[in-house]
């Protein structure tokens, strides 16, 4: 899987990792990450394209349209976990300022 690891993408992935198996709505992700819809959706589209996210439509409640939901796929979960451990390892490997 090749994705551009921007800080915004990491924010979105971290958000999904908080509740790995739950479906999430776009507006909720936008509120919790602080990303605007114009930044968030291109990231979600890319993540879904590479198979990290899966999408689904929530059954419509009366008088309301169905909502688009997103969840990590099994591969996506594996990928995000490995990415997190990689980040942790590289953070420990990096020397502290003034000590390196």
């Amino acid at each position: 899987m090749k994705i551009r690891k921007s800080p915004q993408t990491n924010l979105v992935l971290a958000e999904f990792l908080q509740s790995e198996k739950e479906w999430k709505y776009g507006y909720d992700i936008s509120r919790s990450t602080g990303l605007k819809s114009g930044t968030l959706y291109p990231i979600l589209i890319r993540l879904a394209e590479v198979g990290i996210l899966e999408t689904s439509w929530e059954a419509a409640a009366t008088g309301r349209p169905p909502r688009h939901m997103y969840k990590l796929t099994r591969n996506g979960l594996k990928y995000v976990r490995s990415m997190v451990s990689e980040t942790t390892v590289s953070a420990f490997a990096r020397p502290l300022v003034g000590l390196g």
Binding site: G26, Y27, S37, Y41, R64, P65, P66, R67, H68
Partner: peptide, 12 residues
């Protein structure tokens, strides 16, 4: 599909 998702989301 994504644009439609955003349109529906706006209603919430």
């Amino acid at each position: 599909e994504w644009a439609l998702g955003m349109l529906h989301e706006a209603e919430f």
